[in-house]
Design a protein around this nucleic acid. Structure first.
Length: 899
RNA sequence: GGGGUCGUAGCUCAGCUGGUCAGAGCGCCACGUUGACAUCGUGGAGGUCGUAGGUUCGAGCCCUAUCGACCCCACCA
C-alpha cells in the first residue's frame, strides 16, 4: 500500500467491479421487508452539479447502510425528459442552424429531440457513477420510455373518467417567451419596481369621472366592467350605471362586487376578466364578457387575431368561456410594454390620468426563462385538485407519511390545503402528448388509451389528436410506481411499492413530492413512501446559491478528480444538519481528504502488524487498552446506527470521524504499540485481534459514506472475503463491552494528558524523557500500577515511580493532579519555584471556581429535592474530587514556597 | 399578510427528548521527523451561546418580546 491514499488509482476500477458483479442489483426476498428509494430523476439536459451530488450521497449512504443490514435494497435510478427545459435547448440549437420549430415540423422536431436525448441523456448518468452511487442500473428508467408513457396515458384516462381531469377556458399563467402555459408552481415571484397609474373613466349616466388605480394600464382595452363595493357610500349613486371605456369608447357596466375593497385606493377596480385572475372570478360572478387583448407571444391583438376569433365563433366550435379577441387598432402588434407607454400617453393627452405613484410589487415570472408571466384565459387541460388533495393531506396528518425534518410538514400541508386546479397542458412538442382527440365534424372530445379511428359520436374518421403535451411533472408524479412497472401488475411493483424514503431538496416539495403523494394515494391506494427526507441547498463558500449565471458553481467531477469521490461525499454530509443549506468549500473537501488519508494510514499500520494472520477474537485475554477501544466501538456502533435510523447522516458521519481519528488513531493505535512492541506474545496476538476487529467495524461503519477507500482497504484485511458493501453492518456485542476497565483506562489516559500538559507548560521538549512519580488516589492503585509502559510511550516518561499514599516526592518537582493520581516530575534546575507556584496558582483558581459552582448547586435545596438522585450523587462526587484537588494544590504551593 | 430558518470561538458550522454542552473543522500561537500518517503529532490562546424578560432546582436547548440576516407561500387593484 502506498504511503498516501490515491483515489484515482482505485475508484474507476472498483466501481466497474461492483457494477459488473451485480452488487447493486436488488433481489426480492419474500418475507423480508425491502428498503427502496427511487432516485429523483435528473433532467436529461442536466450536468451533474453539487445539488445532485449531495442528493445522491444521502441516498447512497442510506442505500448502502440498509444493504449491509441485510434488507433487500433497491435504489432505482432514471432520468426525466424535462419537457420544457429540453425543448428550449433544442430550439436554441436549431436557431444556430437558422431553423425554427415550424421549419422542421413536429415530426422533425421530435426526431431531433430523441437524437439529442440519445446523445446527451446518458451524460448525467455516467457522471453519477463517478460519485460511487450504488443504484440498480439494470432497472434504470426514463420518463418517456414505453412503460412510463403507458402509465401516463393510463392515469390521464382514469382521472378523465372520474371527472378529475377536464378541459376548459380558465385563467392560467402564460409565458410569452416559452409560449406555453405553466402551472402555478412554476411561477416565481420577483420584486419589481412599477407604478400605480390612476385612471379616470367617465360615467355615462352622470358625466362624473371615476378614478381607479392599476399597475397594468395596458390591460384596460380588455376591461369589461368596473367594480365597486355595494356597501361603499361614495358610489351608492352609481349602482346600475356604466362607464365609457376610454380609447375604446365602449360602454361597460359598473358592477358591485366584494372584490372591490373600500379601504384600498379609491375603492374602484377595473375588471379585465381575460388578463387578471381576480377579475376573471369577478367576471364569472357577473357573467361579463371575456375580452383578450394579448397574443400568445406578448403583443397586442389586431385584425388578424380578431378575424380568426370571429371565424371560430361563426363556425360554432367555440367552447364554453372562449374569450373574444379585440382588435386593438393603433396598439395592435405592439408589445405589452410598448402598449403600456402608448396607452398612458394617449390617456394623458385626454386628461384621463390622475396621479402616478411609484411602487414595488411582486411580479410573476417564468421559472425557466424569467420572463414576466401574463395571466390569460386560455383553453387548457386541468386536474381537479380538491378530491385528490384530501387523501394526500390525510396521510401526512396521520403520520403515514413523515417529513424529516418535521417542519416541512407545515410547508406541505399549507400548500396542499390551498392548492388550486393544476394546469397540465403545455404548448410544447417534447413530452407526453395529451391522449385526447377531437372530431372535426361534430367536435366530440375523445380521451382514450389507444389512438381512436372513428368518432364514437358521429362515426366519421376526421379525428385529430390534441397538439399539446403534458406538464413534465405529470409523469414525475407517477415515478414511484411507473418505474416499477405499473399499470402492469409486476412482481417488482408488488414487492417494492410503497417505497421507503424519498430524498430531495426543499425546493421541489410542491413540484414533485406533493404530486407524487396524491398520485400514489389515488392510483395505488397508498402513499408512495413513508418518509420524505428533505435536505437543503448547496451554496458557494460565500453562501450564495450556485448558479450558471453567477458562474460560481463548482463542478463535482473536478473535485473528484482532485480529491477523490470519497472526500467529496464526506464533505457533503459531515456536520450538515437536515433541511439546512450548507456552504461548500474546498477546505471542507480537503479536510475530508485528509480524513481518508488518515484511514488509509491507520489501516496500513494495522495491516502491517497483522501480516497474513486473521487473529480471531475468541479466547483472548485483552489488555486495558483493548477493552477500552472495544467498549468505545460498541458505543459508536450504537450511536451511528441510531443516527442512520433517524436519518441524521450528518451526525452519523461526525461520530465515525471522531471515533476513527480521536479514539482509534490518536489513542488506541498509540496504546497498542506498547503491546505490539512488547515481549508478551499472547498479549500481542490479542491486540492484533482487536486491531483487526475494530478496523473492520470502522471500515463498515464508514462504508456508506466512503465506499471506495473502505472497500479497497477491506480487501486487504486478512480473513475477509468479497466486497465490504455486501458484508454485515456491525452489531453491538455485550461480550465485548468492559465498562469498568474502560473507565480505568480513561483515568490512565487522563494522567497521560496531564503529563503531556505539564511538560508543554514547562517547555520540555517532547523527545526529552522525564522521570515521573505517581501517587495514585484511593482505588486507582491497580490501574496506575499497570500504566507504566503506556506513560513511557505516550508521555515520554523514562521511568515511572509509584509512590504510596502519603509518601512525599523527592526533590524539586512540578506536579499535577488528575482524577486518578498526583503526578510529580523532577525538573531540577530547569524550573524555578516561582514560575511553578504561579502556574499552580492559576490551576487552583480554576479548581476554586469549580468548587464554588458545585457548592452552589448542592447548597440549593430545590436541586437536592427535585433533581434525579443520580445527578446529585454525581455532583457530590465531582465536588469531592475538586476539593481534594484544591487541598493538594494548596499543599503543593506551600511546599514549594518553603523550599 | 401568513409560515419558516438562521444569529454559538477570527471564519464555516455541530450541539438529540433542558442537568460534563460550552464543541468540531479550518485559521492562529508554541513545540516536534517517537518507523501508519507533515494530507501528521503534542500542547495552547479564543466565546457572559444576538438582546431583554419569563418558566424551572437547573436553559444555547422551553416560553414571550425585541433587534438583525434570509427563505417560502399569498389574487391585494
Amino acid at each position: 500500500m502506498d504511503k498516501v491514499y490515491n483515489p484515482q488509482a482505485i475508484e474507476g476500477e472498483l466501481y466497474r467491479e461492483w457494477e459488473e458483479s451485480g452488487a447493486f442489483k436488488a433481489h426480492r426476498v419474500e418475507g423480508k421487508k425491502p428498503f427502496t428509494i427511487v432516485m429523483p430523476p435528473p433532467n436529461i439536459t442536466g450536468q451533474l452539479h453539487m445539488g445532485h451530488a449531495m442528493d445522491g450521497v444521502l441516498q447512497d449512504s442510506l442505500t448502502r447502510y440498509h444493504r449491509m443490514k441485510g434488507d433487500p435494497t433497491l435504489w432505482l435510478p432514471g432520468t426525466d425528459h424535462a419537457s420544457i427545459a429540453t425543448e428550449v435547448k433544442i430550439v436554441e440549437a436549431m436557431r444556430k442552424e437558422g431553423l425554427t420549430k415550424e421549419d422542421v415540423g413536429r415530426e422533425g422536431f421530435l426526431e431531433r429531440a430523441w437524437a439529442w436525448k440519445n446523445e446527451y441523456g446518458g451524460r448525467i448518468v455516467r457522471q453519477t457513477r463517478r460519485m460511487g452511487n450504488s443504484c440498480d442500473w439494470s432497472r434504470e428508467r426514463f420518463t418517456m420510455d414505453e412503460g412510463c408513457s403507458k402509465a401516463v396515458t393510463e392515469v390521464f384516462n382514469r382521472l378523465y373518467e372520474k371527472g378529475l381531469i377536464y378541459r376548459g377556458n380558465r385563467m392560467i399563467n402564460w409565458c410569452p417567451c416559452c409560449r406555453t402555459s405553466i402551472s402555478d408552481a412554476e411561477v416565481e415571484y420577483e420584486e419589481q419596481s412599477g407604478s400605480f397609474w390612476h385612471l379616470l373613466y367617465p360615467v355615462k349616466e352622470t358625466g362624473e369621472m371615476l378614478e381607479l388605480a392599476t399597475t397594468r394600464p395596458e390591460t384596460m382595452l380588455g376591461d369589461t366592467a368596473v367594480a365597486i363595493n355595494a356597501e361603499d357610500p361614495r358610489y351608492a349613486h352609481l349602482h346600475g350605471c356604466h362607464v365609457i371605456l376610454p380609447l375604446v369608447g365602449k360602454e361597460i357596466p359598473i358592477v358591485c362586487d366584494e372584490h372591490a375593497d373600500m379601504t384600498k385606493g379609491t375603492g374602484v377596480v377595473k375588471i379585465t376578466p381575460a388578463h387578471d385572475p381576480n377579475d376573471f372570478e369577478v367576471g364569472q360572478r357577473h357573467n361579463l364578457p371575456v375580452v383578450r387583448v394579448f397574443t400568445d407571444d406578448g403583443h397586442m391583438t389586431g385584425a388578424k387575431e380578431k378575424t380568426e376569433n370571429d371565424e371560430l365563433f361563426a363556425s360554432g366550435k367555440a367552447t364554453v368561456g372562449e374569450p373574444r379577441v379585440l382588435d386593438c387598432g393603433k396598439y395592435a402588434g405592439m408589445t405589452t410594454k410598448e402598449a403600456r407607454k402608448a396607452i398612458v400617453e394617449d390617456l394623458e393627452a385626454l386628461g384621463l390620468v390622475g396621479k402616478i405613484e411609484p411602487l414595488t410589487h411582486e411580479v410573476g415570472t417564468c421559472y425557466r426563462c424569467h420572463t414576466t408571466i401574463e395571466p390569460m384565459v386560455s383553453k387548457q387541460w386541468f386536474v381537479k385538485m380538491a378530491p385528490l388533495a384530501g387523501p394526500a393531506i390525510e396521510c401526512v396528518k396521520s403520520g403515514e407519511v413523515k417529513f424529516v425534518p418535521e417542519r416541512f410538514t407545515k410547508t406541505y400541508l399549507n400548500w396542499m390545503e390551498n392548492v388550486r386546479d393544476w394546469c397540465i397542458s403545455r404548448q410544447l412538442w417534447w413530452g407526453h402528448r395529451i391522449p385526447a382527440w377531437y372530431c372535426a365534424d361534430c367536435g366530440e372530445v375523445i380521451v382514450a388509451r389507444e389512438t381512436p379511428t372513428v368518432c364514437p359520436k358521429c362515426g366519421c374518421t376526421h379525428l385529430a389528436q390534441d397538439e399539446d403535451v403534458l406538464d413534465t411533472w405529470f409523469s414525475s408524479a407517477l415515478w414511484p410506481f411507473s418505474t416499477l412497472g405499473w399499470p402492469e401488475k409486476t412482481e417488482d411493483l408488488a414487492y417494492f411499492y410503497p417505497t421507503s424514503v424519498l430524498v430531495t431538496g426543499y425546493d421541489i416539495i410542491f413540484f414533485w413530492v406533493a404530486r407524487m403523494i396524491f398520485s400514489g394515494c389515488e392510483q395505488m391506494g397508498k402513499p408512495p413512501f413513508h418518509t420524505v427526507l428533505i435536505h437543503g441547498l448547496v451554496r458557494d463558500a460565500q453562501g450564495r446559491k450556485m448558479s450558471k449565471s453567477l458562474g460560481n458553481g463548482v463542478d463535482p467531477l473536478e473535485i473528484i478528480d482532485q480529491y477523490g469521490a470519497d472526500a467529496l461525499r464526506f464533505s457533503l454530509v459531515m456536520g450538515v444538519s437536515p433541511g439546512n443549506d450548507m456552504r461548500f468549500s474546498t477546505d471542507k473537501v480537503e479536510s475530508a481528504r485528509n480524513f481518508a488519508n488518515k484511514i488509509w494510514n491507520a489501516s496500513r499500520f494495522v495491516l502491517m502488524n497483522l501480516g497474513d494472520t486473521a487473529e480471531p477474537m475468541e479466547g483472548k485475554s485483552f489488555s486495558a487498552a483493548d477493552k477500552w477501544i472495544l467498549t468505545r466501538l460498541d458505543e459508536t456502533i450504537r450511536e451511528v446506527s441510531a443516527h442512520f435510523e433517524d436519518y441524521d447522516l450528518g451526525l452519523a458521519a461526525q461520530k465515525i470521524y471522531d471515533f476513527a481519528w480521536s479514539e482509534f488513531c490518536d489513542w488506541y493505535i498509540e496504546l497498542a504499540k506498547v503491546t505490539l512492541n512488547g515481549e508478551d506474545e499472547a498479549a500481542r496476538r490479542a491486540t492484533c485481534a482487536v486491531l483487526r476487529h475494530v478496523l473492520i467495524a470502522l471500515l463498515r461503519l464508514l462504508h456508506p459514506f466512503m465506499p471506495f477507500i473502505t472497500d479497497a482497504v477491506y480487501r486487504n484485511v486478512p480473513g475477509t472475503e468479497g466486497t465490504i458493501m455486501l458484508s454485515d453492518w456491525p452489531l453491538c456485542d455485550a461480550a465485548l463491552v468492559f465498562p469498568e476497565e474502560a473507565r480505568e483506562m480513561e483515568g490512565v489516559m487522563d494522567v497521560i494528558r496531564a503529563v503531556r500538559n505539564l511538560r508543554a507548560e514547562m517547555n520540555v521538549a517532547v523527545g526529552k524523557r522525564a522521570h515521573l512519580m505517581v501517587r495514585p488516589k484511593a482505588g486507582w492503585e491497580k490501574a496506575m500500577a499497570g500504566a507504566g509502559e503506556y506513560l513511557q510511550r505516550l508521555a515520554w516518561v523514562s521511568q515511572m515511580q509509584l509512590l504510596a499514599a502519603g509518601e512525599a516526592a523527592q526533590g524539586k518537582t512540578v506536579s499535577a493532579v488528575s482524577e486518578a493520581a498526583e503526578l510529580f516530575i523532577p525538573l531540577g534546575d530547569l524550573v524555578d519555584a516561582d514560575k511553578e507556584i504561579a502556574r499552580l496558582g492559576k490551576e487552583r483558581d480554576s479548581v476554586q471556581r469549580d468548587i464554588e459552582r458545585g457548592e452552589a448547586k448542592l447548597g440549593n435545596p430545590g436541586f437536592l429535592a427535585k433533581a434525579p438522585a443520580q445527578l446529585v450523587e454525581q455532583e457530590k462526587a465531582k465536588l469531592g474530587v475538586a476539593r481534594d484537588k484544591l487541598a493538594k494544590l494548596n499543599a503543593r504551593i506551600d511546599e514549594l514556597k518553603n523550599m
